[in-house]
């Protein structure tokens, strides 16, 4: 990232948009996390929203209280102090997310919108497997489920987690978005677009490739489930999600628990430093899975 100068830009008179990098890396996401965490801790008067995203972040402020120039000076100061990620500790959760791949509901949606897809002759999963060099869709699913993902941003609609896989760069999966966005995506659909996997919180429009459906919700406006007592959205930036392929039988069991209001995610609280990840992503992933399922 030595060849990129951070762009500070006005989003009208109430937003400052800061683009740390044009490309996605784990490192730049940790930087955005570090800067926004420090900014949050300062509790500067006049700041309304702090929104970390994948390779950038955004601040909404009240210019009647806090002049833009003053805010940008502070953000620049925070940026230089976050160059060194050593002193950042991320409070995270390791979470098991059960996903039924190639489920009937997603498959229906996949078939309904073939005319908006790059390759109408294949399913989204077959297409993604092929262009990423996997010999079969099974091998591709194994790659998706084999290593966990960092929740790198929340947004689009409430609770939608953008997830970036914790693997070395050469193993990272990348797929295009639909040629034209769909008008329908099933609720809880597990999708992939650009370098990110997502779970769609609610039914709606979408442009990501569709691979399956998460049995567990990421959004619960009634706050019935124990994991949603504090917030109607479950994911938080910095969480580590492992998408685990499940059978139809397990899917039905989880759905019954969700309906009964008894479902709780299998998860563990976990703190880590960006360096732990950046030095050895594969080793970190393996350690994390051990913690989640065996410790």
């Amino acid at each position: 990232m030595t060849d990129f100068t951070t762009r500070y830009s006005y989003g009208g008179d109430e937003f400052i948009f800061v683009e740390l990098s044009e490309e996605m890396t784990l490192e730049v996401n940790f930087q955005a996390m570090a800067i926004t965490k420090k900014l949050r801790e300062q509790q500067m008067p006049g700041i309304l929203d702090i929104c970390p995203s994948n390779a950038s972040y955004m601040v909404r402020y009240n210019p009647d209280v806090l002049p833009a120039a003053e805010l940008i000076d502070e953000l620049k100061r925070l940026e230089s102090s976050a160059q060194n990620l050593d002193d950042i500790v991320i409070n995270s959760r390791l979470v098991d997310v059960p996903v039924l791949f190639e489920d009937p509901w997603t498959h229906d949606a996949v078939m309904q919108f073939r005319d908006r897809h790059q390759d109408p002759e294949s399913t989204d999963l077959e297409y993604a497997a092929r262009i990423n060099g996997y010999e079969s869709k099974e091998a591709f699913i194994e790659a998706v489920t084999g290593s966990p993902f960092l929740v790198s941003m929340i947004g689009f609609v409430p609770g939608l987690p953008f997830c970036f896989q914790i693997v070395p760069r050469e193993k990272q999966i990348e797929v295009p978005k639909y040629v034209r966005p769909r008008t329908f995506t099933p609720e809880r659909c597990f999708g992939f677009g650009g370098g990110f996997s997502v779970v769609y919180p609610v039914q709606g429009a979408g442009g990501y490739q569709m691979f399956g459906i998460s049995a567990s919700p990421v959004f619960d406006k009634e706050q019935k489930l124990p994991d949603f007592q504090d917030s109607i959205v479950f994911p938080r930036q910095g969480d580590i999600f492992r998408y685990r392929g499940i059978t139809r039988e397990e899917y039905d069991d989880v759905r019954a628990d969700v309906e009964a209001g008894t479902f709780a995610y299998h998860k563990k609280d976990f703190t880590f430093r960006p360096d732990d990840v950046l030095k050895d992503p594969a080793g970190f992933s393996e350690m994390v899975l051990g913690r989640l399922y065996h410790d």
Partner: peptide, 15 residues
């Protein structure tokens, strides 16, 4: 850039 998607109007998802 990596992660953005293939359309020239695509950027790495942002706020």
């Amino acid at each position: 850039p990596f992660g953005a998607g293939s359309n020239p109007s695509n950027v790495v998802d942002l706020g």
